[in-house]
């Protein structure tokens, strides 16, 4: 029997890796991938808690997270396409239009 804490450790580590990627990568598409990494870190924690607390609500929450992740990916990538059409770049440090 694997203890619950191993899963929560794994979820935290994956979340931190995703956060690192989101904060440091220049490419917008990899930043969106890092958001998916963070969501997966949360998902594994929720499924583990749902299993060990014998309640299905955690898994329902994971469903909704997957739905929102799909919506977020579609909108985010549409924004990347619009950005690419106007600025011809996918690097966050070259997008300084609101700096004034």
């Amino acid at each position: 029997m694997v203890p619950l804490h191993w899963y929560l450790w794994l979820g935290s580590v994956v979340f931190a890796i995703g956060m690192f990627g989101f904060l440091t990568k220049r490419n917008v598409i990899i930043m969106l991938l890092s958001i998916e990494l963070m969501l997966n870190g949360v998902n594994i924690s929720l499924v583990a808690l749902s299993h060990y607390m014998q309640d299905l609500r955690g898994q329902i929450l994971v469903f909704f997270i997957i739905v929102v992740a799909a919506a977020e990916a579609a909108i985010g990538l549409a924004i990347v396409i619009a950005l690419f059409r106007n600025k011809a770049t996918a690097h966050v440090d070259e997008i300084t239009g609101m700096k004034g």
Partner: peptide
């Protein structure tokens, strides 16, 4: 060929390590 991380990467490392 381009740099893949922003110039502020040490800040990103420290923030994510702190959160972890």
């Amino acid at each position: 060929r381009l740099e893949q991380f922003t110039v502020g990467w040490p800040m990103g490392v420290s923030v994510s390590l702190g959160v972890l």
